[in-house]
């Protein structure tokens, strides 16, 4: 490993060290050897695991994406950007991408404002139960997405579920409403579940942000005649701008990696109408052993996340330096 080089000793000592260069077994040489052995001993396990199971696979994804390959035998069917073109030409891939974009957009305009309202409700001016409510709102975030998906599948059950029950309350006929079997409605049924799971997480982020806004500031504004709405829009939101950016960023990157909930609620169906990029990757890459094509999808997901990540890093780091 090239980074374990002996050039680290402060210059004065180093000069002394050079003096002994022909006698490596002196106290100093030994100390230096010991130090490097210690570093190697401490860092090697993490370095090896991380490189083998994270860095290499990510790089390999990039390489495999240029080939048509079944995961066995030599990589010789070079496609160039063929896999990427094939993806964008595929109607189902476009549905998956479109669904992801839709989830992002509607999360931004429904889920995050709701989470912000939750935070305002429970973060300021403690009252009986506010801590309990906070705990309850956050709880779904701790649960496995798969489990959540199955619970909601029961709630949406075409014969016994809530939508059917409601329709039977309000109308006389025994109509059955199967949201998850409807190509137009399944997406929205899943979107509700996504909101239910992640609202608490974003709420906690906002609560953390709100702790940095002194309540006196709000009180002063109210005394000056500002309305509650004005306080929210002119004082609170500008003060927690960075938190909001973090939350938006996590929401976007999270949405593009959505898999478990969608999988539990219909594996991307009915008729691919709820496919997301990752379910598409699984259905059309892994299941069909199309490792080249699947890798191309992975690269697309990676690039999308990377773009937002760079924006985010630049913005947040830029803000911090101001």
């Amino acid at each position: 490993m090239t980074w374990v080089s002996p050039g680290h000793i402060p210059s004065t000592v180093e000069d002394e060290g050079r003096h002994y260069i022909m006698k490596p077994l002196t106290a100093k040489g030994k100390a230096s050897f010991q130090k490097h052995a210690t570093i190697l001993f401490l860092v090697a396990p993490a370095f090896i695991l991380f490189t083998t199971f994270v860095v290499l696979p990510v790089l390999q994804s990039g390489y495999y994406s240029l080939f048509q390959w079944k995961g066995l035998g030599p990589l010789n069917n070079f496609q160039g950007v063929g896999n990427f073109i094939r993806a964008f030409k595929d109607r189902i891939f476009r549905i998956a991408l479109y669904n992801n974009v839709k989830i992002v957009i509607f999360s931004l305009i429904i889920q995050l404002p709701l989470a912000f309202s939750f935070a305002l409700l429970v973060a300021r001016k403690k009252y009986t139960g506010s801590v309990f409510f906070r705990g309850l709102y956050f709880f779904p975030y701790v649960m496995a997405e798969i489990v959540i998906g199955i619970i909601w599948r029961f709630i949406y059950h075409p014969q016994h579920g809530l939508p059917t029950l409601f329709s039977q309350w309000f109308t006389a006929d025994k109509m059955e409403i199967g949201l998850l079997g409807d190509t137009n409605l399944a997406f929205w049924a899943i979107f509700i579940v996504v909101c239910w799971k992640y609202i608490g997480f974003h709420m906690i982020l906002y609560i953390a942000g709100l702790q940095g806004v002194p309540e006196e500031l709000e009180d002063a504004a109210v005394i000056d005649g500002a309305s509650k709405v004005q306080v929210v829009f002119h004082i609170i939101i500008p003060s927690i701008r960075n938190t909001i950016i973090i939350s938006v960023f996590l929401c976007i990157v999270g949405s593009f990696n959505l898999f478990d909930i969608v999988w539990a609620m219909g594996q991307g169906g009915p008729v691919h109408s709820t496919e997301t990029l990752v379910t598409y990757l699984y259905n059309f890459g892994f299941k069909r052993f199309a490792f080249g094509y699947g890798s191309a999808i992975a690269v697309i997901i990676f690039l999308i996340c990377l773009v937002f990540n760079l924006f985010y890093q630049k913005y947040i780091v830029g803000e911090a330096q101001k």
Partner: peptide, 11 residues
């Protein structure tokens, strides 16, 4: 920066 999904096939 790397979500699990981007590395899953080579992994």
């Amino acid at each position: 920066l790397f979500p699990l999904s981007t590395a899953i096939l080579p992994l």
